[in-house]
Structures are given as C-alpha cells and as structure tokens.
Amino acid sequence: MGDAWKLWRSDWEVLTAVAGMFVFLPALAKAQLIPDWPMPPQGATLTPGTPAADAFGESMASWLGHYGWGLALVAALASFGQFALVALYLSGDRPPASRALIAAARRFPTLILAWLIVMIPLTLIGTIVALAPILLPAFAVLFFWILARTATLAPVLFAEAPIGAWRALIRSLHLTRGNTLALAAAIMTVFLVASIASWPFQALDAWMAAHAPNPVARTMAEAFVALLTALDYIAMAVLQVAAYRRIRAR
C-alpha cells in the first residue's frame, strides 16, 4: 500500500488524465443515460413459475436488451483504462501515455481472454449462490481470493510479454502464492473505502430521483460517484504494479 501511495503522489497527473477519459467519463455517462435495473415488487416472493417471478424476469430481460450493450461498453472502457495505467509502468522504460495506450490496446484482448477463463467458473458458482443465499459469505471469500491470486495478471502481461492468457494466469498464481492474505486485505481495503465513500452520494441521488428530481443536483452527485469510481480504478492499478514489483524484488 505504501509503494502504491508513492506511485500516486509522483504520477497523479497522468494517472487522473487516463482514468478521467476511460473511467470517469463513461461512469458519468452511464449514470446519466442508463436507468437502474428493475427491482422486484416489495414483499413479492420470486418463486420460479409464479406470476411475480415471470413479470420480473420479463422486465429484467427487456432492460438488458435495451441497456446491456451500454453496460458492457462502460465496463470494457473502465477495464481498458485500468490496464493502460498498469502499462504506464510496465510496458517499457516509463513510456509516455500515448505509447502506454497503444501497448494496452495490443494486449487487451489477451487480458479479456484471461478474465473469461476466470469468470466462467465464477459465474457458475454465483448462479448456485443465487439459488442458495446461505452460501453468500463463502462466495465473498472466494471472490476476494480470486482477486488476490490474479492481482499480478495485468502486470505479467506487460512485464513478461510475449505471454498468453493461460500462461499469464498460471504465472500470477505462482507469484501470489504465499501473499494471498496480504493482497486480499489490500484489495478489500480499496474496495471498502470506495464503497463507503460513494454510498452517501448514491443514496442522495436515489432519494432525489424518487422525491425531489433536480437534474443539476443529481448530476453533481453522480459526478462525485464517477470520480470515486475513477480513484478506485487508479488505486487498484497502482496496487497491482506495486505488488508485482515487490514480489519480483524478493
């Protein structure tokens, strides 16, 4: 965490410029243009086959049909932005932002493939958890364990290129062995700080949407949420770089 903080202090201008373009602006556009997903009726039991469950499923499918592509685009841009931040440090001898963006664009498909390998079993487990909510704590532990063990995935794709998706995953698992708890604690810290800091603005935005619609005030609240999202992605990027450098230096 200390090493990540030093990177932020020395390079905050370029970090915020890249994150502002690829994380902040898409996150703000999402808040402005994509409505919240449908919520089930209060007190309704969503038992499969019941009218309430069928109606909720139809509304969710309709919402995904209209806005799913937008969510996917925002997620892809944010992931690319974070990947480019890692490239600023590990794609050569401190390249300028333009070269880091080009390097990130070249390696981004490999990162997507690696994450697809990870997400397929995780999605299956998440489906099981949805059917048995009692397993949610175990799923949360598994989720942060995976984030910790893949914390050096993006750095490996740059620092040890050329390397494929599967080999990069195996390499990340090897590097993070014995460091899982420390990495998980650092990642959870970033996650919790970002969640707690953004919660008041999200709650205010939701309250204004329901009781006192004010476009200017809502835009300000949504801009603060987008700003905190960008800072979260910056923190995760410099944490990955710091973790990789610290582990390799041992």
Score class of each variant (00 low, 15 high):
Y89S: 00
G92M: 09
A209S: 14
L7K: 05
P26F: 05
H174I: 02
S62M: 13
W207Y: 12
L192I: 14
A230T: 05
L157K: 00
T123A: 09
S98K: 13
P96K: 11
P200D: 12
R246T: 03
L71N: 07
W115N: 07
G68Q: 10
A132C: 06
A76Y: 08
A29Q: 10
M236H: 04
F83R: 03
P200V: 10
G57D: 11
I102P: 00
R99I: 04
I134E: 12
L71S: 07
P215V: 10
S195V: 05
L231C: 13
V18A: 08
L77I: 03
D93E: 14
R218M: 15
M220N: 02
A203S: 15
R218K: 11
T47S: 13
R218L: 10
A148D: 01
P133H: 10
I146G: 04
A212S: 12
E13K: 14
G164N: 05
S195D: 11
G164V: 02
I170Y: 02
Y244C: 00
I34C: 13
M21Q: 07
A194S: 15
A76C: 12
L25R: 01
P213T: 05
S62W: 08
L157G: 02
G164H: 01
V129R: 02
M119V: 06
P96L: 12
A114S: 12
D205G: 14
L231W: 11
I102Y: 08
A19N: 11
I170H: 06
L46S: 10
F139K: 02
T152H: 00
H174R: 11
M39T: 12
P137G: 07
V18D: 05
M1V: 04
A161F: 06
R218E: 14
W207V: 04
A148H: 02
A4H: 05
G126Y: 01
A87P: 06
T229Y: 04
A210F: 04
F24G: 00
